[in-house]
């Protein structure tokens, strides 16, 4: 077993509504060339784009790899792992990642938003994963670290007032932002 069985992933991929790569990260890549990577992404998109993965993460085995995926507006988020990996850990990572993006961008991530905030997207990946293993699965902690607001996870910020403050303010902000978004949408309809 590689790395003595530490939970790990093989890749994290974001594709747009036409299957074009927004970003793709491979760790201990199962593919030897970038052409193979692109071929895998194309195949993945073909197999998954017609399924409904808006509410719950979906799952597929492709080319001997387990991939869990989620659909968010016009983007598709994929987390790829080996067949021996616990797929529910992969799902957990996927959901945290999506939540972190949502909170950091204060809206449902779509292609435009992600491209406009490409740095945020990359930082979110960097805070989630370190060299193929999961660094942090708590979405609040990830958001705080991206925005350089605080380094602690909400659940563990014991005895550090400023950090807790940062965290709550953060949650409030994002809450208000999403409430405002929702209302604005309602008005427009």
């Amino acid at each position: 077993m590689d790395s003595a069985g530490i939970p790990s992933l093989k890749g994290l991929i974001l594709l747009d509504g036409e299957g074009k790569r927004i970003v793709a990260r491979y760790y201990a890549s199962p593919f030897s060339t970038s052409a193979e990577e692109l071929a895998f992404e194309k195949k993945l998109f073909e197999k998954t784009s017609r399924t409904n993965a808006k509410l719950e993460a979906e799952i597929i085995i492709l080319d001997g790899l387990i991939t869990v995926y989620k659909n968010s507006a016009d983007v598709w988020l994929y987390v790829v792992g080996s067949q021996s990996e616990n797929e529910l850990i992969l799902v957990n990572a996927l959901v945290s990642f999506h939540e972190a993006l949502q909170n950091a961008l204060r809206a449902t991530p779509d292609k435009r938003l992600l491209l406009d905030n490409f740095d945020t997207l990359l930082l979110a990946i960097d805070e989630l994963i370190d060299g193929g293993t999961f660094l942090e699965l708590d979405s609040d902690a990830i958001v705080n670290r991206i925005t350089m607001k605080g380094s602690d996870a909400g659940s563990a910020g014991i005895g550090d007032g400023s950090v807790v403050g940062g965290f709550t303010e953060q949650t409030f902000n994002s809450m208000f932002a999403s409430a405002r978004d929702q209302m604005a949408r309602a008005l427009l309809k």
Binding site: E56, I59, L88
Partner: peptide, 11 residues
């Protein structure tokens, strides 16, 4: 209701 749970179980 979650597909991933069903998948993991049946696998």
């Amino acid at each position: 209701a979650k597909p991933c749970l069903r998948f993991s179980a049946v696998r």
